[in-house]
Computed example of a mutant assay.
Amino acid sequence: MEVRFFDDPAAFLETAGGVLAEQPVLSTVIAGIAERIRAQRAAGLPWPDGVPCWFAAVVEDGQVVGTAMRTAPFGDYPAYVMPMSEEAVHEVSRSLLDRGEPVLAANGALPAVRTFCEDMATATGKRARVAQHTRLFELGGLVEPGRVPGGLRRARGDELGLVASWYAAFMADADEQAGREPGASAHETPGEDELARRIEGGRVFVWADERDRPVNLTAATAPAYGVARVGPVYTPKEQRGHGYASAAVHAVSAWLRGRGERPCLFTDQANPTSNKIYEAIGYRPLVDMANLLVE
């Protein structure tokens, strides 16, 4: 068993793409980010200074038996760990420690991500703890919610400021809804240049009321192996309770499915409201995941 690290996402996908494509919903984050970084590099966009950027494939007898990455540009730069055997996780941990790269945060599938962080905690004399329990859902049979005034449309370029402010508010409000201190969860907030590209790409939507005033933001990633991830989903506090999130997620999910894409999304298990909304639309749980810190 060996761990192969890749600075080039294209080379990583060439090695591990077949395995990722076998379970494309489970692989949505790692495959989607690899594709996005590959496209950004092809467009000549710079990578942020000081932010790690690598992908890893665990290979045993010529077969890829595990994958991971470290590309998150926030907090302690958490790794992302896909499902793999305990032995494979230990091999990834050892390889990183041997090259002098202790990792103090990780997200990903249980139990692999917990084992990874426990390895790092043992090596650094710290403790691993779960900061957030998450769950990956895939859309089953799409169920239409009740009638909600207004309709879905793509965000416009002149709404960039509004979109940016809602992206920035999303995680703090999600923390508050889940009973955490607002802003407690480290997360990426895309800059306006990146958001402008996403708006131009046509995958940032707003639910607009009958006066065409945006009351909800719902976005979707570009597809990787035919799977697109819905999120973030954000409704300002003053607009909540009217069904806008349900209507918007339903409409975006129907749009994705109409394009032949498989919709999926992540939820925070501590937020029963969002979990209930998505399950009512037709999303079904696929795997439990977690975000862990080594402190």
Rank of each mutant, 00 (worst) to 15 (best):
R4H: 15
F6Y: 15
D8V: 05
A11R: 10
L13R: 02
L13E: 03
L13H: 03
L13T: 02
G17H: 05
G18A: 03
V19R: 14
V19K: 10
V19E: 15
E22C: 06
Q23H: 13
L26F: 05
T28K: 03
I30V: 13
A31Q: 01
E35C: 12
Q40E: 10
R41L: 06
G44S: 09
W47R: 15
G50W: 08
F55N: 00
E60F: 11
Q63G: 06
T67M: 04
T67V: 06
T71D: 01
P73W: 06
Y77L: 09
P78S: 04
A79Y: 02
M82K: 00
P83R: 04
S85C: 10
S85T: 14
V89M: 05
E91G: 01
V92C: 00
L97W: 04
V103D: 00
L104P: 02
F116P: 00
F116I: 02
C117L: 04
E118V: 06
A123D: 09
G125H: 09
G125Q: 06
G125P: 08
K126I: 08
K126E: 08
H133A: 05
F137T: 11
G140E: 14
L142V: 15
L142T: 15
E144P: 08
P149C: 12
P149L: 12
G150M: 04
A155M: 07
L162R: 12
L162Y: 08
V163T: 05
W166K: 00
A169T: 05
M171R: 04
A172N: 14
E176S: 15
E176G: 13
E176F: 14
A178I: 09
A178R: 09
A178K: 07
E188M: 10
A196Q: 12
G202P: 04
G202R: 05
V204L: 06
V204E: 03
A208L: 13
V215K: 01
T218A: 04
A219L: 09
P223A: 09
P223N: 04
Y225H: 14
A228S: 11
V230N: 02
G231V: 07
T235P: 01
K237Y: 14
K237C: 07
E238P: 06
H242I: 05
G243C: 13
Y244M: 13
A245W: 05
A245P: 08
A247L: 06
A247F: 08
A248K: 11
A251D: 08
W255I: 08
G260P: 02
G260S: 13
R262D: 07
Q269F: 12
Q269D: 13
A270C: 08
P272L: 13
I281V: 14
Y283D: 13
D288M: 10
M289F: 12
N291R: 10
L292I: 04
V294K: 01
